[in-house]
Amino acid sequence: MEILAFGVTADEKPLLERAFAGQHEVRCLDVFLDEDTAPIAAGYEIVSSSVNADLSGRVLNTLAAGGTKMITQRSTGFNNIDLDVARRLGMTVGRVSYYSPHSVAEFAWTLAMAVNRKITRASNRTRDFDFRLNGLMGRDFHGRTAGVLGTGKIGEAFARIARGFGMDLLGWDIARNPACLELGMKYVDKEELFARADLISLHVPLLEATRHIVDATALKAMRDDVILVNSSRGGLIDTEALVAELRAGRFTGVGLDVYEAEAGVFFLDKSLEPVEDDTLARLVTFPHVLVTSHQAYYTADAVGQIIEATVRNVADYLAGRRSENTLVPS
């Protein structure tokens, strides 16, 4: 059987082909799955999508009409998939329920360290042989307070690194993680976390209940010198409200690996095109804001685990099995 994989990066392609070798053929496309590209999947029973795919009802109907019966998404998040429509169409939908939490947690810390110590500004200066220190002063994380919004596997990994820095820990989640409690984390309501933390990192999934969990009210409650990091989902932050606070001169630094309107922009080369998103254009002009292209998960370890799970999802579908990755069974 030949599987069609959308949104495959150059780094990912040989790993996918190697993982399926001897079992199935895999056709890798670098275009993302959306309304325009869905017709390409006609004749493919199994389709693999990437994190920024559009799997709305219209796309799913196009896929089903072309003969697609199974979708396996190469990501943990699935807020982009209309599961009700998939269920009505009788399609099987799988995802990756687990991959290395360290990949995302370590990258969140990379963003925090970079904005704290002005690494981007320093690097740009030294390229021009400007070695002055003016404007590059950071601060110790040791002895300060880290607020972790979402204390699942990734939040726990982030908290462990924070403890390594000698930070106090505040946490918020719908359930307490015993491992985080053992680290000395104090669970508080999110309003207290926003008000007290020197560093805030977001590690909750994007659901209706968490969309814009960091809204204008939350942002105003934060310390003027806070560092805010989001490596989870862009929709957790009200970006317009964030820009308003940044324009007011607040926050030591903001590190964003995700953006709520990233679909159609992230993972693509837009360097020769006019900028259509005024909010994103404004964000990247702030010297204390660092925006990266949804790459927190992008390590050989994590991508390898994602691909292994994708191979298992295909095998389970063909064998009529369910697993922890199954979102919609056949």
Score class of each variant (00 low, 15 high):
Arg321Asp: 15
Ile227Trp: 00
Val47Arg: 11
Phe32Val: 09
Ser293Cys: 14
Leu29Gly: 05
Ala105Thr: 04
Arg233Ser: 02
Val115Trp: 09
Arg27Lys: 14
Gly77Lys: 02
Ala209Asp: 14
Leu15Tyr: 01
Ala122Met: 14
Arg58Pro: 03
Thr285Gly: 09
Gly77His: 05
Ser323Ala: 01
Asp82Tyr: 09
Glu273Thr: 11
Leu33Trp: 03
Val26Pro: 03
Thr145Phe: 03
Arg74His: 11
Ala157Cys: 06
Ala108Asp: 14
Asp84Cys: 04
Phe20Asp: 01
Ile174Lys: 12
Val148Phe: 12
Gly235Tyr: 02
Val311Lys: 08
Ser48Phe: 04
Ser232Tyr: 08
Val314Thr: 02
Ala53Phe: 07
Tyr317Lys: 02
Thr145Gly: 05
Arg233Tyr: 02
Val104Lys: 04
Ala65Glu: 15
Asp173Trp: 04
Asp140Glu: 15
Leu228Trp: 05
Lys153Arg: 14
Val314Arg: 00
Lys220Val: 05
Leu149Trp: 03
Ala263Phe: 07
Pro178Ile: 10
Leu318Met: 13
Val275Asn: 13
Arg321Cys: 08
Arg321Lys: 15
Pro274Phe: 11
Pro329Glu: 15
Thr72Ile: 06
Asn80Ala: 02
Arg58Asn: 12
Ala157Pro: 03
Pro287Trp: 05
Ile174Pro: 00
Ile119Leu: 15
Gly22Trp: 07
Thr279Ala: 12
Thr239Glu: 10
Ala42Gly: 09
Arg211Met: 02
Arg196Thr: 13
Asp277Leu: 05
Ala114Val: 02
Glu208Leu: 06
Val188His: 10
Gly138Lys: 04
Arg125Ile: 01
Ala86Glu: 06
Thr62Leu: 12
Leu169Lys: 10
Phe286Ile: 07
Lys270Pro: 05
Arg121Gln: 15
Pro274Met: 12
Ala179Lys: 14
Val188Asn: 13
Arg211Asn: 05
Gly152His: 00
Val284Lys: 13
Gln23Phe: 09
Thr279Pro: 08
Arg233Gln: 07
Phe107Trp: 10
Tyr297Ser: 11
Thr299Trp: 12
Ala122Gln: 08
Leu280Met: 11
Gly171Ala: 08
Ala261Asp: 13
Thr62Gln: 14
Arg196Pro: 00
Asp189Gln: 11
Val229Ser: 02
Leu193Ala: 09
Ala296Phe: 12
Glu260Cys: 06
Trp109Met: 09
Pro329Phe: 08
Ile174Phe: 11
Val291Leu: 14
Ala179Thr: 15
Leu318Phe: 08
Ala122Pro: 00
Val59Cys: 06
Leu170Asp: 10
Asp11Leu: 13
His294Ala: 05
Asn61Glu: 13
Arg321Tyr: 09
Asp257Gly: 02
Lys153Val: 04
Gly304Asp: 04
Ser56Trp: 07
Leu16Met: 15
Ile71His: 11
Gly22Asp: 02
Thr279Gly: 06
Ile154Trp: 02
Ile306Asp: 11
Ser48Val: 13
Ala21Lys: 10
Ile81Phe: 11
His102Ile: 13
Ser49Gln: 08
Phe194Ser: 08
Ile237Cys: 10
Pro329Asp: 15
Ala65Met: 06
Val303Pro: 07
Arg88Asn: 14
Val93Ala: 10
Ala41Pro: 12
Asp130Met: 00
Ser123Glu: 15
Met91Gln: 12
Thr217Ile: 12
Glu245His: 05
Leu136Asp: 08
Leu199Gly: 01
